[in-house]
Design a protein around this nucleic acid. Structure first.
Length: 922
RNA sequence: GCCUAGGUGGUGGAACUGGUAGACACGCAGGACUUAAAAUCCUGUUCGCCUUAAAGCGAGUGCGGGUUCGAUUCCCGCCCUAGGUACCA
């Protein structure tokens, strides 16, 4: 029979599912390998052809590792809490759980269509109470922990209480709020239970804090910064305003340095690591006190170049420092800046504005009076919200000084063009700089720091850009926070009462009094008397630990059994999009470190190797409708090459009516009534469509559904084709133009096992040298490529191999059976079918013995050396590989054709690289 | 602006540590089979010049330099594209 992919694929998919072929046990006698995909949010739109790219790559990798004898954990699940289901619920009243369930079903069908080797018995859903029970449990661990800087790790809060009881707050080095109290052990013991709890909250890894949040009244929810685009919500486009709210926060800043250092040893893409580094934003500098202002600076060496100080308009000392004569001006300025939107502030980097407060600060070393200004180029949220301005070294300070006629003092003898711009150099020797005059940068720093310490006016300080993460959303469809309030103080519910179930509500909107939707739940009180926390957890909660749940998904005693964790350890390969660079991937690393500190898991980092698959963009097609002289649209359409001869407007046309950019006229005519009698101006007898690369979306008519491709060519073709498209990590437009080639390849492969009448026909003869060579070339290639995640080159080489075997008319079991195994990670269905036809036990291909590469088959005795003259290739000459330089040179020079190329000249020098090249230099 | 990745035929792309640029595939052109079409197979296909043809010559991996016997690959300067970021002191 010809290659009947439909029949083959549905049969094997059923077989795998019925026989649980990919169910994996925690089996310590085998080496483990953990291949993880970023789990999807099951949206209503279903999968398009871009989604499976990463899943196909990870599946190939997982199947390959399985064949190489690893016990492979390759699970899949759903990040099923989220805003879209909730918005849909608000609009329709449909419970988000129902929509979510429907969407998951659809996702599952689409995924199953592609022949993935997921162990579905380990599926997780973040919105499932059996799952979020443990998300709540992790929250409790964070609540019950503090960060001890002495040992640089998190500890149970009980160790802190013990310290308070024995020696009070003295000597405690913790990552905590700034307003912690000082007390002795006795004082601590005399505090009431409530006062103690209040104090402890300042140390917990998750804590309540008044934060400014992006509040969206229309959605009735708080949005993350990346959910807000230019003052409007990303979804729905509703206006967003700034609002102060009591919010749960996570003390991720405690881990800033460990999160930064940990990056060095991770096998992640450099751009991704760079993004996280930037996000963490470590800068080493100094705190310097200009009485009464404290500033943070990374260039303490320019201390003598300070000619003024600048405070953020929001700085707490602004009002008290303003002199009566400046009061009005300052008030005006503050009012102005608070009105300015974020965008205005950023857009205006060329012009500077500011106002003098009328007050002066004291330079810590010279004691000189330094004028204090305010300006919006200084941010309240970074450092101390105040800067020492050094116009000679900092461009912003320079602009400010120019604008307001303040002095520009050079501090290094190499600074130049200071009348044009600031010069931030660190080269040269200091001038105008008191005790560091004549020194270089490296010498000056310790001298200055020592002096500032002596004067008690400064110290070394490390500053981070990273902020504590807000952990709460005023929305319904998320994990309830396992906390209740007693006299305004938060307490954890009893662990035995987990999961704290999401209560039913009548509407998914905030209450009339502005409380989150959970405020609508009736009779929802802890022990029937205490208010529960009404906000739910943010989207990243459930995804910050899910890889552990896959290890032991049905455990109801722990988030995962210790044995399972110590076996599976960490994720060996994680594949997903780079859009999670600073969200999910940072929070996951953070929670992992907390769990490690508390002794629940063993690894400091959760994801050893990470690959970002590229985005698959849409490839839109256009038709060009001719516009007549009156400017009216006609019903005539002109082919793209001729469109400039007419006045036209471009219309998106559904890509499913277009093949190789040629429009299917009939389908076009039937697509809409108005096109039924459309006329066409062809080129070369065809209507060619225009092309543009855009995002894949319904409105652009360029969405390609994997189901349609599978229907037409089969899953194996789709899998191979998505890999063939180009390097995994590169973004590229979806284009079906080449898919025929891949499909033809599978048919050719199928043909190798069949005679011309399509009867299965295999020979048991010993393969020839050439046949072995073709096989072992591909064995080696696949092995090399998979290490580099270069799947596209492997597909090309499968084609080369099959072409060669076809030329050799090879139908020998000794070759083809091994080739089936090598190809099976890419095309598992056709593989299983042929594997069974070859007489092997059905369904055993996935765990077959991978053929061993044997160098012997590739050893050549001769090589067709390229002969080049002055580095330009002229001809090939086949020479034995046993020969060394002198003999080769002799042979080359004796050759008539070579002499022709030399044209009478005699070579000055002959370069010979064995097995590579001969180059004659004349 | 800064950070990162990238720029190769009509198209997707290949060339792994400097050694035959354009593998493989699409598309296109021509041919075979066929009443015809589909499918399949064969040949050609970087560009330019020259030639009836065989063959030959020259240019060529964003642009300009450099190192080298030899550069898509290494170095310097610049241009463009994509992603990230936005006054971080």
């Amino acid at each position: 029979m010809d290659y009947q992919f439909k029949d083959i694929e549905s049969r094997w998919q059923r077989f795998w599912s019925e026989n649980q072929t990919y169910k994996v046990e925690n089996n310590p006698s085998k080496p483990k390998y953990y291949v993880l995909d970023m789990f999807p949010y099951p949206s209503g739109a279903g999968l398009h052809v871009g989604h499976p790219l990463g899943y196909i790559a990870s599946d190939i990798f997982a199947r390959y590792k399985r064949l190489r004898g690893f016990n492979v954990l390759h699970p899949m699940g759903y990040d099923s809490f989220g805003l879209p289901a909730e918005q849909y619920a608000i609009q329709t009243g449909q419970h988000p759980a129902i929509t979510t369930e429907t969407n998951i079903k659809r996702y599952r069908e689409q995924l199953d269509n592609l022949g993935f080797s997921f162990d579905w018995s380990r599926e997780v859903r973040t919105s499932d109470p059996n799952y979020y029970k443990w998300t709540q449990w992790v929250f409790m661990q964070l609540f019950n922990s503090w960060y001890n800087l002495e040992v640089d790790k998190a500890e149970p809060i009980s160790t802190l209480i013990a310290k308070f009881e024995t020696s009070g707050s003295k000597g405690i080095k913790a990552e905590c709020d700034e307003d912690v109290a000082n007390f002795t052990a006795d004082e601590w013991k005399r505090l009431s239970e409530e006062e103690q709890q209040k104090e402890l909250l300042k140390y917990r890894l998750t804590y309540l804090r008044e934060s400014i949040v992006n509040w969206c009244p229309a959605l009735g929810t708080v949005l993350a910064n990346d959910e807000v685009k230019e003052g409007f919500s990303e979804r729905g486009g509703h206006p967003v305003e700034q609002k102060k709210m009591m919010q749960w926060s996570m003390r991720i800043t405690a881990y800033a340095d460990r999160l930064l250092k940990g990056l060095d040893d991770l096998d992640w893409p450099e751009p991704l690591k760079e993004m996280q580094r930037y996000w963490i934003g470590k800068s080493v500098g100094a705190m310097v006190s200009f009485d009464p202002i404290e500033v943070f600076t990374t260039r303490v060496d320019t201390l003598f170049g300070v000619s003024f100080l600048v405070l953020a308009p929001e700085h707490e000392l602004v009002l008290s420092l303003t002199t009566p004569s400046q009061k009005e001006e300052i008030a005006d300025y503050i009012a102005q800046t608070s009105k300015k939107s974020e965008l205005d502030r950023v857009a205006n980097t060329k012009t500077v504005s500011g106002v003098f407060t009328g007050s002066y600060a004291k330079h810590p070393i010279t004691g000189k009076d330094i004028p204090i200004w305010i300006s919006d180029y200084v941010l309240a949220g970074y450092g101390t919200g105040a800067v020492m301005a050094v116009p000679s070294g900092d461009q912003r300070d320079w602009l400010f000084a120019k604008q307001f006629g303040l002095p520009i003092i050079p501090v290094l003898d190499t600074q130049k063009d200071l009348d044009q711009q600031a010069d931030p150099t660190k080269e040269g020797r200091y001038i105008n700089s008191g005790l560091i005059n004549g020194l270089i940068y490296q010498e000056a720093i310790p001298v200055l720091i020592a002096k500032l310490k002596e004067l008690d006016a400064g110290k070394v300080k490390v500053n981070y850009r990273l902020r504590d993460a807000i952990f709460g959303r005023q929305r319904y469809w998320g994990e309830p926070v396992p906390v209740y309030f007693k006299n305004g103080l938060p307490y954890l519910i009893d662990e035995k009462e987990l999961p704290l179930l999401l209560p039913e509500v009548d509407k998914y909107l905030p209450t009339e009094s502005g409380e989150p939707p959970l405020g609508r739940a009736e009779h929802w009180k802890y022990q029937d008397q205490y208010e529960y926390e009404l906000s739910t957890m943010p989207g990243w909660a459930g995804s910050s630990w899910y890889w552990y749940r896959y290890m032991d998904v049905h455990n109801d005693q722990a988030f995962a059994d210790k044995k399972a964790i110590s076996y599976w350890k960490d994720v060996d390969l994680y594949i997903g999009g780079s859009e999670h660079a600073t969200g999910h991937l940072l929070y996951s690393r953070f929670w992992n470190k907390v769990l490690k500190d508390l002794g629940y898991v063993g690894q400091e980092e959760p994801f050893k190797k990470l690959i970002n698959q590229g985005m698959i963009q849409g490839r839109s097609n256009f038709v060009y409708r001719v516009v007549n002289e009156g400017g009216k649209s006609t019903n005539t359409f002109v082919s793209v090459g001729l469109r400039h001869q007419y006045k036209t407007i471009a219309l998106h046309v559904d890509v499913n009516m277009v093949e190789n950019d040629v429009l299917d006229i009939n389908r076009f005519k039937f697509s809409r009534a108005e096109f039924a009698d459309a006329e066409f101006i062809f080129e070369g007898g065809k209507y060619i469509c225009g092309v543009e690369i855009e995002k894949m979306s319904k409105s652009r008519f360029n969405v390609v559904n994997p189901d349609d491709i599978v229907e037409r060519y089969g899953a194996d073709t789709l899998r191979l084709y998505e890999m063939f498209l180009g390097p995994l990590e590169q973004s590229k437009p979806w284009n079906t133009n080449g898919i025929e080639g891949v499909f033809k390849f599978l048919r050719k492969f199928w043909k190798l096992f069949h005679d011309d009448a399509f009867n299965f026909c295999i020979s048991d003869e010993t393969p020839s040298k050439a046949e072995y060579k073709a096989l072992h070339k591909i064995i080696r290639k696949v092995e090399e490529d998979i290490e580099r995640f270069s799947f596209n080159t492997s597909v090309s080489n499968f084609m080369i191999c099959v072409n060669e075997l076809q030329d050799l008319k090879c139908n020998k079991r000794g070759i083809l059976q091994d080739l089936v195994i090598v190809l099976s990670p890419y095309a598992p269905h056709i593989g299983e079918e042929l594997w069974a036809l070859l007489g092997n036990k059905a369904g055993t291909l996935s765990y077959a013995t991978y053929p061993k590469f044997d160098e012997r088959y590739l050893i050549e005795s001769e090589f067709a050396y390229p002969i080049s003259v002055n580095g330009k290739m002229k001809m090939n000459l086949t020479i034995s590989l046993d020969l060394a330089a002198p003999e080769v040179e002799q042979l080359v020079l004796a050759n008539d054709d070579v002499q022709k190329h030399l044209d009478g000249r005699s070579p000055k020098k002959i370069i010979f690289v064995k097995g590579k090249i001969v180059n004659l230099v004349v």
